[in-house]
Computed example of a mutant assay.
Amino acid sequence: MTATVCTPPLPAALTARQATRMTPAVIVLAIAFVSFLLISNALGARVCEVTLPWSVRGEPLRLTFSAALISFPFAYLFASVLTEVYGYRISRIVIWSGLAANLVMIGFLWLMTLLPTEGAWAEQTGFTDEVQRHWYEAIAHMFLASVSACFVGEFANAATLARMKVAMRGRLAGLRIMLGSALAALLDTVVFVVVAFAYVLDLDAMARMAGLEFVFKCAMQWLVLPLTVGLARGLKRVDGIDHYDVGTSLNPFRFRASLPQPSADLR
C-alpha cells in the first residue's frame, strides 16, 4: 500500500490544466481499454506454438505463447494515455471498470454452460455440453490469470507514469511511457504465466514463454510509442487538460467516483 506522497508544488504553468471534468475522449479511451481486456481474456484460452527454422542443441526452436499476446499490449496503450493526460485517479476508475467487465462476462458465460444444448445443433456444430464445459473451464482459468496480471501490471504502469511525470516536470513523455510499459510488461508476464500455466507447463517451458511474451510486449508497446505520445499530446491540446498527480495516493483500493478537484496543494 502506498501512502500519500508530499511533493513540492509544481510551477503554476504546469498545474493550470488539471483534470476537473469528464470529456468524450475519456469515455472513448475507457471503452477501448475495456474492449481489449475482454478480447485478451477470450484469446488467452488458446496456447499457440510456432516452430522456427533454427535449432537449439539439436532440437527445433519452438516458441510457446498465449494468443492474448497479440491484443493485450493495446490495453496498455490506452491506459498510458489516460494516465498521462487525465491522471491516476481517472485511470484507476477505468482499470477497475475493465476488471468488473471481465467479471460480468465470465459470469454470463458460466450461466450459458448451465443451459441445455439443443441436440440437433450440438450434433451439427460439435459444440456439445461437454465441449462447452471444457471451453468454459479454460476461459475461467485464463480469466483468473488475466485479471491477476492486469491488476498488477496496469496499476504498476499507471503509478509509474504518474510519479515520473511529476518528478520530470512533464518532460520526456516517451521515456516515461517506455519505462512504465517495461515494468508493467515484466510484472504482467510473470504473474500471467505462473497463474495460467503452473500446473500445465514445466519450468523451462514457462521461462521460455515468459521471456518471449515480455520481449514481444515491450517491442509492441515501443513500436506504437509515437502513436501513444502523439495521441496524448493531441488530447492535451483538444481537451485543455494535462493533469499532474501531485500528492495523489497510489493505493489502487482508494476508489473515488468523483473527478479530482483543484485545490491549493492539488490533492
Rank of each mutant, 00 (worst) to 15 (best):
A167H: 06
E84M: 08
G126C: 07
I70P: 01
R256P: 03
R57E: 14
D202K: 02
I139S: 03
M105F: 12
G174S: 04
L201E: 07
L144S: 01
L77M: 15
V238F: 06
G234R: 09
R17G: 00
R237K: 14
A232W: 01
D202N: 15
Y88K: 02
R89I: 07
F74E: 11
E154F: 05
A30L: 07
P60T: 12
G247D: 05
L111A: 11
A149K: 04
L77D: 03
A120Y: 03
L223A: 15
C6A: 14
R171G: 06
W222L: 13
A12V: 01
S263F: 09
A32V: 11
A198F: 12
Y199T: 08
F127V: 15
L186A: 14
Y76D: 10
P260C: 06
G98V: 13
Y86D: 00
L223H: 04
Q124C: 10
W96M: 11
W121L: 14
M220K: 01
V166I: 10
V229L: 08
V191E: 05
L38W: 08
V81Q: 02
P262E: 13
V195G: 04
D239K: 00
F65C: 10
V26L: 15
M164K: 05
A182L: 11
I70M: 12
G234F: 08
M22E: 02
V85E: 09
R57L: 13
Q221H: 02
M209Q: 09
M168S: 09
M1T: 05
V81D: 01
A207W: 07
A159C: 06
R254F: 02
R254E: 11
V224M: 15
W54M: 12
M142E: 03
G153P: 00
V195F: 08
V94L: 10
R89P: 00
F155D: 07
A264R: 13
V104E: 04
V5Y: 08
H243N: 03
G174I: 02
A162E: 08
Q124I: 14
A167L: 13
R176Q: 06
V200M: 13
Y244G: 01
V94D: 07
W54C: 04
I241V: 15
R208W: 08
V147D: 02
I95N: 06
A75C: 07
S97K: 03
M206I: 14
V215H: 03
G87E: 03
A159Q: 05
H134C: 03
V229C: 09
E123G: 04
G230C: 11
L186N: 00
L37R: 03
E123Q: 12
R92K: 11
Q18F: 10
S97T: 15
Q132N: 08
G107S: 13
M1A: 09
G87L: 04
Y76N: 14
P11N: 13
S40A: 14
I90H: 09
